[in-house]
Amino acid sequence: MSEHLPEAASDKVKSVHLVNIPTKVTGVDIIESDAKALGRLHQKPKRQQHQPKPEIKLHVKTDKLKRHTSIKRPAVPEASRGILGIAFYAVGRFISAISNVIK
């Protein structure tokens, strides 16, 4: 947008005499309260601050902790024992692992 109105040479303003413009004066209180009310509507709602998770202190002895943290593998069922059973079991585990990866 242009900063100034384009003015032709014939439109040059030589003098202006604009006096005695009727003026009305009022207090500011009502405008102040209405502007505050408008401001409240335009304010964005405050985001709820996420509270930090409380620290959980584990009062567990280290040897027990080690035992609990070790991963226990499920035992091989009795029916699967034997070389053929173990082989079938291994193949089944392999297929389920691949299907998990594909998922």
Partner: peptide, 29 residues
Amino acid sequence: CRIRFKKIRNAFLKIHVEQSMSQFLKQEE
């Protein structure tokens, strides 16, 4: 901290240009 309202009619009238006219307009404010 007061509100001042000013009002003016949105109108104009082209006047025949004479030397006395601008003086008349100033005198009559």
